[in-house]
């Protein structure tokens, strides 16, 4: 028996490719940007980021790009996040909680449907990446 078959090699390739996509830039189905200025962090942006990391990990999703940016300028409505599904206008969500972001992740990031009740504006600005 060989130590590694062609099939095994392909599996290792696929798995490691998924884990290293962000180094080479691939196709992303969506980008989520959490605003992490000092105000955002104070308002609980880390919780939002952690919740998103957990979602990605548990669902083994590698084609959603998770980034952060500085203060979005609307400190009173922090924590905030911008969701940009490929090919659609970015949507800014405000006053987030762990529960809300999970719902947004499920419905908007994965399902493609904007969660209107948490959204602030649509298409107001693009994210960096």
């Amino acid at each position: 028996m060989p130590k590694l078959t062609l099939d095994d090699l392909a599996k290792i390739r696929e798995k490691t490719k998924r884990l290293t996509t962000i180094r080479v830039g691939g196709e992303y189905r969506a980008k989520v940007c959490v605003h992490m200025g000092t105000c955002g962090i104070a308002a609980g942006a880390r919780t939002i980021m952690n919740a998103l990391m957990k979602e990605l990990e548990e669902r083994e999703i590698h084609d959603v790009l998770l980034t952060n940016s500085g203060c979005a300028g609307l400190c009173s409505r922090e924590p905030m996040a911008t969701v940009e599904v490929a090919g659609q206008a970015p949507v800014k969500y405000v006053d987030l909680t762990e529960k809300k972001i999970k719902e947004i992740f499920e419905k908007h990031v994965l399902g493609g449907k904007i969660v209107q009740e948490y959204a602030l504006g649509i298409g107001s600005e693009k994210t960096d990446y």
Binding site: T5, K15, R18, L19, T20, L56, E60
Partner: peptide
């Protein structure tokens, strides 16, 4: 053959 460990994803990779 090598064990397939649980996939751990990171949102930032720092290439030093």
């Amino acid at each position: 053959m090598a064990e397939m460990a649980k996939e751990k994803a990171y949102r930032i990779h720092l290439m030093v």
